[in-house]
C-alpha cells in the first residue's frame, strides 16, 4: 500500500448562509446551477430568466421573451445554450451570450413544468401538464418534436435525463423511466402525485418526492424502495428535492420554510435548514461542491458548508 488510505471526510452540509440574492423578478419559480456550478439560473414569475454568477452573486444577463412565468430552465453542458419552459406552453432555447431566442418550440397543450437538455444538448426534453414529454431536436431546423411520450396519464411534473435514461414523474403517481438503450419503459407506481424526481449521481437509484410528504429512494433496476424520508411538509405545492453532490444526503423543500436534509443511508434527519417563513420553492445542489441554492419568494439563498470569511468584501464588491 503505497498510498495511505484517504482520511474519511466528514459529510459536509450546506448549513451556512453565504449569500442572499434578491432577484427582482417576482417569485422565483426555479433555481438551477449550470453544468459546472459556476453560474446559476433563476426563473422568475415575471417571465424572465436571470443568469447569475455563483461566486459573486452578480447579475450577468436577463433573458426575456416568455409570455408567462418561467417554470424551469436548464443550461447546456458547454454553457452556450439555455432552455427554459413556461406557463405560456412554450419551450425556448436561448443563446447565452447574446440573450436572443434561438428557437421557440410550441406544441405542448398546457403549461410546461420541466425542461432538460440531454447530455450533449442535442435534445431538449420538456414535460408538460398535458401529460406528454416532448423531445425536441436542437440540431434540426424543424419545429416538430422528435418523439412525444404520452404514456403519462396526468401532467408531467418533473423530468430528468441521465445518459441514455429519461426519468419522469407524473401527477398520476407514477415514476417512469425510459431506457433508450434497452428500449424499455419502467413504471413505478407511487400512488401519490409526484412533484420531483432525481437520479442519484451514481445512476443506481431514483429519488422521488410526492405530495404525501414523503421522499422515496427507489432502486433503479428493480423498483424496490431503499429509503423513505419523511418529516417535511409537501402537501399541495410542487416542490423540488435533490441529492447532495456525493449522494450522501437527500434534500427536499418543505412548505414550512425549511429545507430538510436526511442522511441517505440511515434515513435520519441530519439538517433542517431554516430558509424563511414562506414555502421553499426550489432548490439546487452544486454539482461538485457542498453548496445549496434555495429559492423562496423572490429571493435566492446560497448555502455553503463553511461560512464565507470574506463576506464583507464580497458584499462591498
Amino acid at each position: 500500500m503505497a498510498f495511505p488510505q484517504p482520511r474519511p471526510q466528514a459529510p459536509q452540509l450546506p448549513q451556512y448562509l453565504l449569500r442572499t440574492i434578491d432577484c427582482q423578478q417576482g417569485a422565483v419559480r426555479a433555481v438551477r446551477f449550470n453544468a459546472d456550478g459556476n453560474y446559476l439560473l433563476s426563473c422568475g414569475s415575471d417571465k424572465s430568466i436571470k443568469l447569475w454568477s455563483t461566486s459573486r452573486g452578480t447579475l450577468l444577463k436577463t433573458y426575456s421573451g416568455h409570455g408567462y412565468e418561467v417554470l424551469d430552465a436548464d443550461g447546456s453542458y458547454d454553457n452556450s445554450q439555455i432552455c427554459s419552459c413556461s406557463s405560456d406552453k412554450t419551450v425556448i432555447l436561448w443563446d447565452v451570450a447574446t440573450g436572443q431566442v434561438t428557437r421557440k418550440l410550441r406544441g405542448h397543450a398546457g403549461k410546461v413544468n420541466c425542461v432538460q437538455f440531454n447530455e450533449e444538448a442535442t435534445v431538449i426534453l420538456s414535460g408538460s401538464i398535458d401529460g406528454t414529454v416532448r423531445c425536441w431536436d436542437t440540431r434540426s431546423r424543424g419545429y416538430k418534436p422528435i418523439q412525444i411520450l404520452d404514456e403519462a396519464r396526468d401532467g408531467v411534473s418533473s423530468l430528468k435525463v441521465a445518459q441514455h435514461e429519461l426519468l419522469t414523474g407524473s401527477v398520476d403517481g407514477r415514476v417512469r423511466r425510459y431506457d433508450l438503450r434497452m428500449g424499455q419503459l419502467h413504471t413505478d407506481f407511487i400512488s401519490s402525485p409526484i412533484t420531483c424526481v432525481c437520479f442519484s449521481h451514481d445512476g443506481q437509484c431514483t429519488l422521488s418526492s410526492s405530495l404525501d410528504s414523503t421522499v422515496r429512494l427507489l432502486d433503479k433496476s428493480t423498483g424496490e424502495m431503499l429509503g423513505e424520508y419523511t418529516g417535511h411538509t409537501m402537501k399541495g405545492y410542487k416542490l423540488d428535492c435533490c441529492l447532495s453532490s456525493r449522494d450522501t444526503h437527500v434534500l427536499s423543500c418543505s412548505e414550512d420554510g425549511h429545507v430538510y436534509c436526511w442522511d441517505l443511508v440511515e434515513g435520519s434527519l441530519s439538517l433542517k435548514l431554516p430558509v424563511g417563513k414562506a414555502v421553499v420553492q426550489s432548490l439546487s445542489f452544486h454539482p461538485t461542491e457542498t453548496c445549496l441554492l434555495t429559492a423562496m419568494e423572490g429571493r435566492i439563498q446560497m448555502w455553503g458548508a463553511e461560512p464565507e470569511e470574506t463576506q464583507e468584501d464580497a458584499a462591498a464588491t
Binding site: G26, A27, R29, S45, L71, G110, N113, I129, D154, G155, S157, V171, P193, T195, L211, G236, Y237, K238, L239, E255, G276, K277, A278, V279, Q281, M296, E297, G298
Partner: peptide, 11 residues
C-alpha cells in the same frame, strides 16, 4: 392541475 406552485409572496 397537479401540484400547485407556491404563492409568490406568502410571507
Amino acid at each position: 392541475f397537479g401540484p400547485k406552485l407556491p404563492p409568490p409572496a406568502a410571507a
